[in-house]
Design a protein around this nucleic acid. Sequence first.
DNA 1: GAGCACTGC
Length: 736
Amino acid sequence: MAKAKTTARTQGKEVKKRGFRAVDKTARQPAVVYFEEKGAKSGASDAADDDDDDDEVNQHVSRQELKTRAARLLKVRESLPVFQNRERIMSHIRSNPVTVLIGETGSGKSTQIPQFLMDEVLGNGSGSGGKAGGAIAVTQPRRVAAINLATRVAQEHGVQLGQEVGYSVRFDNKSHKGRTRLKYLTDGMLIRELMLDKNLSGYKCVVIDEAHERTVLTDLILGFLRELQRGKRPDLKVVVMSATLQADLFSRFFDEAPVLFVEGRKFPVERFYLPRACDDIVDAVVRAAVQLNSSEGIISGGSGSSGGDILCFLPGQEEIDKAVSILNKISPVLDRTVPRIQAFPLYAALAPREQARVFEPLKGFRRKVVLATNIAETSVTIPGVKYVVDCGLRKVKVWRHQLGLATLLTVPVSKASVAQRAGRAGRESAGKCFRLFTEKDYERLPAQSESEITRSEITSPILMLKQYGVQDVVNWSWLEHPGREAIVSALKELYELQALDDAGKITELGRKMALLPLAPHLSAVLLEAQERDVLDAVVDIVACLSVENLVLNPMPEERDEVNERRRAVCPLGTRYGDLLMLKELYEAYESLASAGERQEWCKRLCLSQRGFKNVIKVRQQLLSYVERLYKVKGNVSKEYDEDRTLDVAQVLKCFLRGFVKNTAIGMPDKSFRTTPTGETIAIHPSSMLFMSDVTCSAILYIEHVFTTKGYARSVSRIELAWLQEVASGVLKQGTR
DNA sequence: GAGCACTGC
């Protein structure tokens, strides 16, 4: 019941001398020109965000230069499959309210279709500037993609980025309200626009890109668009773009909308399976990499880099770290006639500096082996990869509505995912993919992974619907229904947070919560802080909590020292736990004068500097939103009196307001029992309170996850009296 | 006494 390690396919121990059998040669046509985000920043996921305003370079390019460059790019554009099918595609879009377009990688759909639309839907007049309310929105699931695509398309179109063509992502808006006719935005941004302008009156056409990824937000947008077309906006054009199957789902959802298929341009990838299943994926990956390294000669030429690098997919950090250390340990003793292996880990929780190492070309007779999580499936593209090793597993977070906790499971990936991973070997030239499972196992994989909306907590989506004005959320236009149970528990949760009233209508408080860029629980905390007049302190913590991977895991060998250093910096955190630690870390970071000092400090404490830069932005955004919501000037400057000590009790009571249910009582045997159900829960090893000798009569935690057992993450020590004070009414409601 | 995949506002 614990971590569902899917070793169901586990078989005999005979892993030695395992050869690969070629089973299936992908019969794709030989590759021609491959189009990728040339000219756009390649590589690291968020690297583009790191240095602010690095796009300013563009500003001084003359109109003439823009046109010349566009003319040059036109040659490339014309070779794209989408470009050659322009008439066929546009005639469908012209005569249908919704068109579903299946375009493979390299078809050019994300860059070309929006430009065709600009010409056609908005009229070809270049000087018209577009009538009011005539723009085209193109949504992307990720920030970098939105930025890169807009940059590329502006170049192709021969215009200044931020004028006719622009983008809008959180903390970065390069679009002009009157002038921008084509706007790339993240799906989160479009949802926000929907909350503020229900009819999307500014747009004539909305393109949903990467719809197959089925993020919660794209699912929601599709629902909103269908409702709009059937109601206030029958004229709204919708194009759903997707890379793989699922066309039927989208087509059915939009009254049998036509489905168009455009072939991509990618290189063939030869696929291999194991003759029999393996029982140790780390061992199997290591063997595969070593075997590949000796059997596949290194390719000289190319663009300077050696070429022929190996990308391995593993489910999580633990497996990756293990494999990396084994590979790097054995590589010096391997045959000298083959390239020396150099292994690199890649996962989201890795310090940005470490992540960047996978992009550096190697010197000498070496071969790069990158061991990555799912991050390399969509978010990060590593240049030079010719071989993919796929263990066929991934980790998913599955929300248990009945229990109110998240479980982390290792599960087999879908066929779609496996294809996507294989495709990573064929981006620059023909490649090979080695699957560490049998072909039979492959056949048994589900076609698609379970969509996010069916396995997530949906308080936030439900609050959005309520804010939008949807009364009957159970019978709303769900692309895929999340299930009655999920909806009921979300409604209950929102009611307990006082975002909804007895009749299930959104309250004034609920509206405020919906407008904050936070999970409803954290919104409740922040608004409570405003009421209790401790906004200053609480906003720091909330901002830190909403930035991922701020506090990184130190390597095992330096773990104890790092913990010790953190304790030295955080006296309150040592006593009261992780929330106060975040507060102290933020203050310490902010008080450092120079960037150099900050960098050094982050390194010493194993914290992410990029994370802190984000914290500062988030914090400012939150403060300005709260200010606007209350129409009062918040105490933005942090210079309060010297002797004004932090009121820890007040701060933690604010968190109790949003997380009453996430509390547990300390037992004599030092274990904890959760207040709603009495289950045992343990403090997560990453917590400041994990090894602490401070006894806690009660704890509050931000997250309850079940891996090998129930763990509380982001834990704070609280007093029973606070719990009684804040919780008295709510807890009674909360009993199931 | 032991470890979280990935996005977004």
